[in-house]
């Protein structure tokens, strides 16, 4: 008999709070595949994503007693993953190539058929963005941070955050057009 997901998560939560390794394993196996997608969006490659995932889960199991059952456990874990990814980005900031942003990127207006693109393809495109651009894009588009919050978190100006986002959109659109060909994107200009 299969237990309901909610009840299952509650049981796992209690076990994890008690430091039960089996409960931790079950929670990991239940949530990690979704969290891996989050990590993949922030990382340059799969290896980096796995590192972020591992670091994130170490934090999750270390801080699980702080989790209040009022919210969603999955949302809480996701937040930890995002924070871990941002920390990782900040830690590696010195090693990263700073790509100069040119303002007023040429606006590409096209109709994209995302349904015919796989998630893996989109992930590849996002991972192809420069590090700063990728982090800003993820934070703004995927997590819903404001430009000011991104600026505070990454230590940049809100204007720089906007520029990075604009750049990310432009690059992604261009890449989608390239990959899908004329069949999937229609130029307007």
């Amino acid at each position: 008999m299969k237990l309901t997901p909610k009840l299952n998560l509650d049981n796992l939560l209690e076990g994890c709070r008690a430091g039960d390794r089996k409960a931790q394993e079950l929670l990991y196996k239940q949530t990690a595949p979704k969290m891996m997608v989050v990590c993949m969006r922030y990382a340059r490659d799969r290896m980096e994503a796995e590192d972020i995932l591992q670091l994130g889960y170490i934090k999750v199991f270390g801080k699980i007693s702080e989790f209040r059952s009022a919210g969603s456990l999955e949302g809480w874990i996701r937040r930890i993953m995002v924070n871990t990814a941002i920390e990782s980005y900040r830690r590696n900031l010195r090693m990263m190539n700073i790509v100069p942003i040119t303002e007023n990127e040429e606006q590409i207006a096209a109709d994209f058929d995302f349904s015919r693109m796989g998630m893996q393809v989109l992930l590849k495109l996002i991972q192809g963005l420069s590090d700063g651009t990728r982090v800003v894009f993820n934070m703004y588009v995927m997590e819903g941070f404001s430009h000011q919050e991104i600026a505070d978190s990454l230590g940049i100006s809100a204007g720089a955050s906007k520029s990075q986002l604009s750049r990310a959109r432009a690059v992604l659109k261009q890449e989608i057009i390239k990959m899908e060909g004329i069949d999937y994107a229609t130029y307007t200009g």
Binding site: A32, P33, K34, M36, V37, M40, R41, F112, F114, M117, M119, L122, V141, M142, R169, L172, K173
Partner: peptide, 17 residues
């Protein structure tokens, strides 16, 4: 709309570990 479509693509997606 572009952002929303991207979000939809990633919603409930999973990667096997």
């Amino acid at each position: 709309e572009f952002d929303q479509r991207l979000r939809d693509q990633f919603e409930n997606s999973e990667i096997e570990l």
